[in-house]
Design a protein around this nucleic acid. Sequence first.
DNA 1: CTCCCGATAT
DNA 2: ATATCAGGAG
Length: 214
Amino acid sequence: MMPDKIAIRAREIDNRLSQLYPKAKTALLFSNPLELLVATILSAQCTDERVNQVTRSLFKKYKNAADYAEASQSELEADIYSTGFFRNKAKSIKGCCDTIISTFGGKMPDNLDDMLKLPGVGRKTANLVLGAVYGIPGIVADTHFIRLSQRLGLTKNTDPVKIEFDVQPLIPQKRWSPFSLELTLHGRAICHARKPKCSKCVLLDLCPFSAKSI
DNA sequence: CTCCCGATAT
DNA sequence: ATATCAGGAG
């Protein structure tokens, strides 16, 4: 398929999904940039619902970077236990807060390069936080985005960074963040990893994958 | 590539 | 029993 055809299809996909999920916003609950960073770290291989359940009490206990930095590793592990990967996540959160304090003077980094210096923060987490808090455009290549962009024929790559760069030229920069969330929401609601509901999908006629799965 | 890892759906 | 959930590091 010609690249320009893909771009036209990508725009149509964005148009339809933006109608289906109007004013889509992240389901993660937060009231400041640090809280969103923590919630996003916790969301790895875990549902947003469970993350919110954990952060509701977590954010009452830990108000700033120093609170996490000064907490013991084992106590923080216990506080986030049910999100899974609790040792890695506790270490990442504490490491982020250490770096925020020592390297960034207690302020949250507000650009991609600085955000990626935080331990446990990769491009997916960084782009999500930057987009939601600072309005900085970025493709959030999470597990849903990767699966749907592959099924929809927007990329043939499997590497998240390559997928990010494959999709960028297909969508206006202003739409990168909303488009990412649309694919994620559609992945949760319809285009499941295991048993996609192709018959209920508004993208049916645009999707190469649907032809094979019906 | 493997490992980290609990909760839930199938 | 097994796959999957807004991943990242070694």
